[in-house]
């Protein structure tokens, strides 16, 4: 439903979004995850047709956003960051205006507005001036606005930013419910948000895609940079085991201690090891060949937090063009 290919946005020599490609399939709820200033809002604004891109191509529901901007915008319910609203209007008035603006036919309008208000749980403030609404309510009015024309695709920029924990939970539940009928792309800079609402995440850092996949995939990508071992050294020679581990190609470091005939410890794989799980398998085979008993060999999982930290702070890999390297 959303296809982004080689999207770039430059402000002068600064690349706010740099060669970003990803896709969101029908019915998916995808988190667009990245620290502040990573380029999330810039990307979403381009997708929504508010900002022009420097280069690249974006299709929304099959419509190119430059060539068929109108059709693309029709597929879309967009909630800008911080949900700016006309504060002099009442909630129902505002949503009726938005529904009409988005081309909802007059006879359906009232029903659609009521439904969107119910879905976003703002029906209790229908007659309140937006000026007098709390941040949480304004955010949900923005959500109701995105929903009111029943677009197949929702793009939400930080839908829970600035809310208190209760409101955050409410909005997340709401998004989960919406995910059953909409394709959703939502941005966030906090990881639990993705865990709570999304099936998949696209991680962006400094304008570039830093990782992509289901949460499980993201986790497993970094899963085996370390492995936990419990060994029963042959003839009780702990030093031999440690020497063997250190000698294995790809093992960066190894630390552990012996206790009642067992050696427990952890090894860390070098970055150049392509498939740490395969390497661990190989390592176990060698340990067994040498006559050591293997009680446990577990690739340790990095927590999502660790993954996120790694993805977003890691320096650029070699071979990629440097930032600002325009022709």
């Amino acid at each position: 439903m959303i296809e982004v290919s080689r999207l770039t946005k430059a402000y002068g020599a600064f690349y706010a979004v740099n060669d970003v490609s990803f896709q969101v399939g029908k019915g998916e709820v995808v988190g667009f995850l990245g620290p502040n200033g990573a380029g999330k809002s810039t990307t979403l604004r381009i997708l929504a047709g508010f900002l022009g891109m420097t280069s690249g191509q974006v299709r929304i529901g099959g419509h190119d956003i430059v060539e068929a901007s109108f059709e693309a915008r029709q597929q879309l319910g967009y909630m800008p960051e911080a949900a700016p609203l006309y504060t002099e209007m009442r909630v129902r008035e505002y949503l009726q205006f938005r529904a009409e603006l988005k081309g909802v036919a007059g006879r359906d309008r009232r029903a659609r507005v009521e439904q969107a208000m119910a879905e976003a749980r703002v029906d209790d403030v229908a007659e309140t001036l937006i000026l007098n609404l709390s941040k949480g309510y304004r955010q949900r009015v923005g959500l109701a606005d995105a929903l009111v024309a029943r677009p197949p695709i929702l793009i939400l920029d930080e839908p829970t930013a600035g809310l208190d924990p209760n409101q955050i939970r409410e909005v997340r539940d709401l998004i989960k419910g919406l995910g059953e009928r909409h394709t959703i792309l939502l941005s966030t800079h906090i990881l639990p948000e993705v865990e709570a609402t999304c099936g998949r995440a696209v991680v962006i850092a400094r304008g570039r895609i830093a990782g992509e996949g289901t949460l499980e995939e993201l986790r497993s990508k970094r899963r085996s940079s370390r492995a936990r071992l419990a060994l029963r050294p042959a003839r009780g020679e702990h030093e031999a085991v440690e020497a063997l581990l250190r000698g294995v190609d790809g093992v960066k470091s190894c630390k552990g201690e012996a206790h009642e005939g067992l050696w427990r410890g952890e090894i860390t794989w070098d970055k150049k090891v392509d498939d740490p799980e395969l390497a661990l398998e190989e390592l176990v085979r060698r340990l067994v060949e040498q006559g050591h008993g293997v009680r446990e060999a577990t690739p340790s999982k990095a927590s999502l937090d660790e993954v996120f930290a790694q993805l977003t702070t890691e320096p650029q890999r070699e071979g990629e063009p440097a930032e600002g390297g325009a022709p």
């Binding site: 604004r45 929504a48 047709g49 508010f50 109108f70 059709e71 915008r73 029709q74 879309l76 967009y78 800008p80 911080a82 700016p84 609203l85 006309y86 504060t87 938005r98 603006l101 988005k102 081309g103 606005d145």
Partner: peptide, 13 residues
């Protein structure tokens, strides 16, 4: 106020 963003992303001419 930023409302221009909601306005211009609606399918209007």
């Amino acid at each position: 106020s930023g409302t221009i963003e909601a306005l211009l992303t609606a399918p209007i001419s």
